[in-house]
Every structure is written in C-alpha cells, then in structure tokens.
Design a protein around this nucleic acid. Structure first.
Lengths: 138, 138
DNA sequence: CTATTTGCAAACCCTTTGCAAAAAT
DNA sequence: ATTTTTGCAAAGGGTTTGCAAATAG
C-alpha cells in the first residue's frame, strides 16, 4: 500500500485511481492549473473527466491535503499542503516561487538574493482569527 | 472641480458620472464586490450598467487607481490604492482587514493585538522581480 | 451490499466583448 | 469634431451540479 493510498485512507477517502492520479500529478508538476492536471492525467487515463478532477480537488481541499493558490489571473492553481509557505508570483509570467515562512519573524527581503529587486503588487493573508469584528468567532 | 474629477483628469480619463460613482462607492464601502458596487450605484443612477462598472474598474486598475483583492471565494473585491498594505481575510466570514505594511521589517504578529491568535491559511505575494527564473525579465 | 465516486452534459456565475448611440473634452 | 464611454445583449471561460452507472471497501 503506497503513500498516497495511506494518506487517503487516513482521511477516510476511497483510493480511486483518479484520486491517486491527481495527487501524483500535484507532486510532479508544481502549482498546476485545473487544465494542467486534467491534460496530464488524461495521458495515462484517457477516460478521466474534468468534472472528476474538480470534484477530487474539492474533496482534497476539504481534507486539508490540497490548497489553492490564487494569483488572480482567472485560473486557480493547486498545491499539496505541507507547511505554511509564501507564494511569490511573478507578475509578468505568473511563475510561482515557494518561499519558506518564518513563523516568528517574517522578513521576506532577508530571504532573497541580495541584489533582487522585489516590487510588491499585492500581499494577501488568508487567516483565521479570534478577533474578527465581523463574525465574532472566538 | 472636485477631487475625483481632478484625479481622473490627472490620469487622462474622462470624468463621467458613472466613473465618479464607482470611485465614490469605493470610498464609501470597503472592499466591495462587483455586485456590491453595481447595486449601490444603481440606487442613484438606475441606468447604470454592470458592464460599465466592469469597464471602469478595468480602466481604474490599469491606471493604478484601484487594486483587486482576491480572497479566492469566487468573487473579486476592489480597493482604492493608497499605499502598500496587507489584506488579512477572515476565513470564516470573508471580512477583510487592512494592516499597514512596514517595508523594512514586516513582522505581522507585532502589529496585532497581543492576545489575538492568527492561523495563516495562505499567504500570497504578487510581485515583480528581476530574478524570475522563468521569464528572465531583468 | 452499501456508500462513495465517476463521467457526461447541462447549468451557473462572473467577466468580457462587439457595436451603435450618447457623452465628454 | 474627435475620442472615449455607455448600455445592451450575446458570448466566453472556469467551475459546479444532477443523476445514472461504475467502483471501492
């Protein structure tokens, strides 16, 4: 029983070939779009349906196995969740670079090559909080 | 000649009532969705078309007056751009809080109330760089 | 055997586009 | 007078849904 099957069983999900293909491809290709996934998986399993990829990604998201990377270009990207990290997205070509996230002191500049010039366009943190004045979820 | 008209003229945009309404509403309501904007503006100008709101937001984005806030729930939010700041999005109710961004040392925890527990779900930086290995734009 | 998952097609939503009429400068 | 902008309706593109057949456990 391989790692993917164990991971799925641990989350009480059935280990279908389609599901395993999605996980495999997420490891193989970094931050793929839905179409990247679909096209790649179809090579090995021509009967794979786009709806199934969507449904599986949805399920894997719910279980915390997969996270979305939204760079606001109209297409969502997907990533297997390992630990909190930062996505630095090139505004020009949309390439996504993973940068480690230091929980205690996040000084992103210090993590970069010294002569790299980063110009921030947008910085979004999606987080849960116990102090949201709107939903008051404590 | 009011501030909005001056702002638009400075960017070589015609100061139409529709355009001014969009700016007004962006000031009035924080981080509205497209539909928020459309519905609010229709109150005062019933002939306002949704396509016009989209077109104006597009133009204002191009000119750097407006930025998008994408919290990956399927709807885009919009914000008048003043200076770089962080959007902390509540995962539960989607309320967006603006947090100041310190260019030299960004320690987001220190900016928050001491007993607030933030659990980061996602942290995205959209930035231009001169070291992107993919597009090599220097 | 039962509950979940798949695959297909249709439906959905948000967003964009084409174009003629209207408005801004 | 020229150029931009508006408003309408249609099209577009990514995502979701309903349901019967297939599959996993």
């Amino acid at each position: 029983m391989n790692d993917f099957v164990m991971l799925l069983k641990a989350k009480e999900l059935k280990a279908t070939p389609q599901r395993i293909s999605v996980l495999k491809e997420l490891i193989k290709k970094k931050h793929p779009t839905m179409d990247d996934l679909y096209e790649a998986i179809k090579q090995e399993n021509p009967s794979m349906s786009l709806a199934t990829v969507y449904k599986n990604i949805g399920t894997l998201k719910e279980k915390g196995i997969v996270i979305e990377v939204n760079i606001a270009d109209g297409k969502m990207r997907y990533d297997i969740y390992s630990q909190p990290h930062i996505h630095i997205v090139c505004k020009n070509c949309h390439h996504i670079r993973d940068v480690a996230y230091d929980e205690t002191l996040f000084n992103y500049q210090s993590q970069l090559e010294t002569n790299e010039k980063i110009e921030i366009q947008r910085l979004d943190i999606i987080a849960t909080t116990n102090h949201c004045e709107m939903c008051q979820k404590v």
